[in-house]
Amino acid sequence: MEKFTEITAIAVPLDRVNVDTDAIIPKQFLKSIQRSGFGPNLFDEWRYLDHGEPGMDNSTRQINPDFVLNQARYANAKILLARDNFGCGSSREHAPWALEDFGIRVIIAPSFADIFYNNCFKNGLLPIVLPEAQVNDLFDFIEANEGGQLTVDLQEQKIHYNKTSELSFELDQFRRHCLLEGLDEIGLTLEHSDDIKAYEEKQKAITPWLF
């Protein structure tokens, strides 16, 4: 997994509550057995006016000019600014895969759905929860300042914007550590193999029908 330390980039504002993972990456693209290549179909039903299917040449499709990701001022955005309950619904990890493949590394919202939030960290994506008033301030800033960038510093857990404005965010320390170091969680867990085996031995006596 790619390490995450600091990023300075344009943020794209997605002003909708309850954005579900079906919207982030529609089901027809879940048939892929790969981990990559989902970026061109991120938000497919909102981004394009025609119906998308796997294997289509997306460069020939009809773009929806009203959708925020298609607006020139947000090209190259690496930060997504969102509303409450972002990533609700299906557990599909294809949603963070699509965001990451598109180039998004940070998502800022007042709240996230649990499974999506968890899936982000496995893919080098940083989801940041901020109070609604601060998210509103960021929406106002990026809408009023074309080309305005945010800097997200994971080490310091700070967001800098508009030259002098600064916000702090909270994060689970284990997740922060894994992101900063780009760690493989399975490897970390396997370091505790003896603990897992000891647990299994203990449980064999208590719940033998599970072994």
Binding site: E93, P96, N118, N123, E185
Partner: peptide
């Protein structure tokens, strides 16, 4: 429910 990375994590550990 879990994501695919966690499916792999459970398979392995």
């Amino acid at each position: 429910g879990i994501g695919t990375s966690e499916v792999e994590h459970v398979l392995a550990t």
